[in-house]
Amino acid sequence: MANKKVYPMSRWEDWDREHGTLPTPATDYSQWPAGYSILLNEKIMHPADLSLSKMKLDRKRQLFVDDDLIHWGSPRVYAYPT
């Protein structure tokens, strides 16, 4: 009779017994509020204002998914697949 494949059924407590308790895998933003406030702020991380910079366009379609092309613009609305 062929051996049936047996899947291991260990749960966290089994793993803990063998390897010790895992540290909590959460990011605690309160430990470094000043730093995280910078890292999570895209405007601070990428401050260059490109609205006055010149560019060269090829023949391909130019999208409006961000402000890269735009000096002044109407409100942007994102769409999603349906």
């Binding site: 010149k54 560019m55 409006f64 092309l69 735009i70 000096h71 613009g73 942007r76 609305v77």
Partner: peptide
């Protein structure tokens, strides 16, 4: 993916120079 929209109030979009 995204559109620049205007309603009955006209909108204006100006590009960077290119």
């Amino acid at each position: 993916f995204a559109s620049l929209n205007a309603s009955t109030d006209p909108g204006l979009v100006i590009t960077r120079p290119f």
